[in-house]
Design a protein around this nucleic acid. Structure first.
Length: 197
DNA sequence: AGCGTGATCTTT
DNA sequence: AAGATCACGCTG
């Protein structure tokens, strides 16, 4: 499988959110372990016109990487527990990113089970906080890119339109009406919809 | 349905 | 300096 190059990430954020489904995220760690997962759920966030986006008001220290060139990783920490993994989109100086919400594990499963402290396969990466834990991704990964040795995204056949579902985004209060969540219909690793209000 | 957890952002 | 919020996950 071939590594996706910069041009792939130069699409509008909302398009990219759909195009990322089915693609393979790869992390080659320093210790030689290779972790792989197929992206099955994403959400788009845009600096302009999207009040749920961290960068909708201004550039700050936390969100500054959202203004970088597409293909960078935006990783932040929230709820006192969880890291969130985003892939930066939009040209430099325009804020945008796609949140990676769920993946299907393809390699490095034993490492992931240890990280996640669970043996249930479908529980390893079926949520945005779960998958960063499984992949040992934290704030030290913020600002890295998918064109390095350690991280890459590998190509996969394009999914048919009818395989992709759309919905409102999960766990936000502002701009709730936007249908900016994309997922592979029927894939068991897609996160459950959050029930609380 | 409720809560832990701590960084970030807004308001004072 | 203080308070509110938060792109969540786990237990009940």
């Amino acid at each position: 499988m071939t590594r996706l190059e910069k041009s792939f990430f130069e699409h509008p954020t909302l398009d990219l959110a759909g195009m990322l489904l089915g693609k393979i995220f790869v992390r080659r760690m320093q210790n030689g372990i290779e972790l792989r997962g197929k992206i099955v759920e994403t959400e788009a966030y845009l600096g302009y016109g999207d009040e749920a986006c961290h960068a909708w008001r201004r550039k700050t220290e936390r969100n500054s990487i959202m203004f970088a060139e597409p293909g960078h990783l935006y990783v932040y920490f929230t709820y006192g527990n969880h890291h969130m993994l985003n892939i930066v989109s939009e040209p430099e100086n325009i804020a945008g990113a796609v949140l990676i919400r769920a993946m299907e594990p393809l390699a490095g499963e034993s490492f992931m089970r240890e990280q996640r402290k669970t043996d249930l396969f479908v529980n390893l990466m079926s949520g945005p906080g779960k998958l960063t834990r499984a992949l040992a991704i934290d704030r030290s990964c913020n600002g890295r890119s998918l064109f390095e040795q350690e991280f890459q995204l590998q190509d996969a056949p394009e999914l048919p339109e009818k395989a992709i579902g759309t919905s409102t985004r999960v766990g936000i209060t502002r701009s709730r009406n936007l249908l900016w969540r994309k997922f592979i219909i029927g894939n068991p690793h897609v996160s459950r919809i959050r029930v609380s209000c």
